[in-house]
């Protein structure tokens, strides 16, 4: 059998399910595909596995508003039908939002998606978006950020990691920080690392409440595109 039909699914990782790990999300989505009764392809070999490929991992605790995976089908099922069946077979916190067929030769999601947008919610006794924005700009202006992870230190070049200036606003008494980062092979800067660094050098206290990835984008020249519309 040839490649089969490459189906792209957009879904959310929301509510309490933001506490799931990437592997837990993968297993849950694969089980939704099986429950939906879709004619999914399996890999060759002694222990066949469902043929699917996921976008970049979200850490435990980070929610996602527009996440993606590809799954290959052995026969064509109209996208609308797939969406209906998947929606009826998925946990509410991992609900599918849209489905479309993707070209068989397109690069994988993990290779194509190189820009991520995040929204970070910070609780603070006072709202001071302008002030915090300046502190954040100071951190960005310093050029690099050293992040410790599992005993290792990684230094991020902020000019490369942050293709846009972070923006700070406020909403319901929280500071809302919007951060766009480059993700990929060379390592992905976690937005909370940047916010923590800014908080540690700011005159006022604050604590990080929630991180949500709001978008995943493909860089096409100067344009940034979504992997499906």
């Amino acid at each position: 059998m040839a490649e089969g039909f490459r189906l792209r699914v957009r879904y959310g990782k929301t509510g309490r399910l933001r506490h799931l790990s990437h592997l837990e999300v993968i297993r849950a989505c694969e089980r939704s595909v099986r429950r939906a009764g879709l004619p999914y392809s399996v890999t060759q070999g002694f222990s066949p596995k469902i043929k699917a490929a996921f976008g970049p991992a979200l850490p435990v605790g980070t929610a996602g508003e527009r996440e993606y995976y590809d799954v290959w089908l052995t026969s064509y099922v109209p996208a609308r039908t797939v969406l209906e069946r998947l929606a009826g077979a998925s946990p509410a916190g991992l609900a599918p939002q849209a489905v479309s067929y993707a070209g068989g030769r397109e690069p994988s999601l993990s290779a194509a998606l190189t820009v991520a947008r995040y929204r970070v919610l910070v609780a603070s006794p006072a709202t001071w978006p302008e002030e915090f924005g300046k502190v954040l700009a100071g951190v960005v202006g310093s050029g690099t950020l050293a992040v410790e992870h599992k005993g290792k230190t990684k230094v991020f070049d902020l000019a490369r990691s942050l293709p846009e200036e972070p923006r700070v606003g406020s909403e319901d008494g929280f500071l809302v920080v919007e951060i766009t980062t480059r993700i990929g092979q060379e390592g992905s800067l976690r937005p909370e690392a940047l916010v923590h660094e800014a908080l540690s050098s700011s005159p006022k206290p604050g604590s990080l409440i929630a991180v949500t990835r709001t978008d995943l984008l493909v860089e096409a020249g100067k344009e940034w595109l979504r992997p499906m519309e």
Binding site: G15, R16, L17, H19, E24, R31, A89, G93
Partner: peptide, 15 residues
């Protein structure tokens, strides 16, 4: 939940 190991133990919401 953000403070503990393996929060999936406590989240509910499973199929």
């Amino acid at each position: 939940l953000p403070l503990v190991e393996r929060p999936a133990r406590y989240v509910d919401g499973e199929w």
